[in-house]
Amino acid sequence: MTASKLGSRLLVAVVAALALLWVAPIAWMFTTGIKPAPEIFALPPTWIPQRPTLDHVREVLSRWPFLRWALNSVVVAGATTVLSVLVSVPAAYAFSRLRWRGRDAIFLVFLSSMLIPLEVNVIPLYFLMNRLHLLNTYPAVFLPMIGMPIGIFLLRQFYINIPGELDDAARVDGCGNLRILWHVILPLSRPALAALVIYMFTFAWNEFFWSMIALSSPQMFTLPIGLRALQGAYDIDYGVLMAGAALAVLPTLMLFLFLRGSIIRGITMTAHK
């Protein structure tokens, strides 16, 4: 008994050490961002900044439209999330609560488009957005992220497990499908909706390849593209680069510290059948 208890303590200690090592790169980014230039390149490296400074942060915020990038990211990620939920909810309802011929076959077709990542489509999307005169606008970035199969997959998985008696009862009371969806299914599916919101927001917030192609003017950049522009300008001036990266990570980190449980639960749900 004591041996196994000791074993379990030891395991936790090892895993904890590993976890510290795992987050060390993030800590290193934050400390580099507030070190003055000579200290960044000092040997041996200092783990705790000796003379912390906000010069790099000021440089990023004053020379670059950093806050505008953050705003752009919020708009793009927000629009992607809201529209994804709006189109996925009714479709998932039809694929789970209604019975009709060909339902599962059509669902499988939608689902298999998981194999068409955005990256594969960037050239045709560029042509398309050019024709629609949408290049370098928000919609160019968020429209292609909306029809992702994960939305209907995740919600359908959840809807299927809601007992059928609930809508039968509502149907007896004369409710149509829209009202059943609104009054019965939606209130019961908050966890799945939360999962979808978290997943889509993260996905859109981090999207890189297509955004880089669709957005050309610095005023329209999202954070990931803006950081790439910073790299182009500062090359190996790591103080400024890490300050920019840290500023971009800060909101994510705050949100994660507050909502750790729900974010992990939500993301787990997207990966779990």
């Binding site: 009709w100 939608f110 045709p124």
Partner: peptide, 23 residues
Amino acid sequence: IALFILPFAAFWILFRLGPVLYG
């Protein structure tokens, strides 16, 4: 049923399947 699926299908065809063929 078609109306329930249509909004999703429209985005999916225009921005996911369609581009593969267009590509």
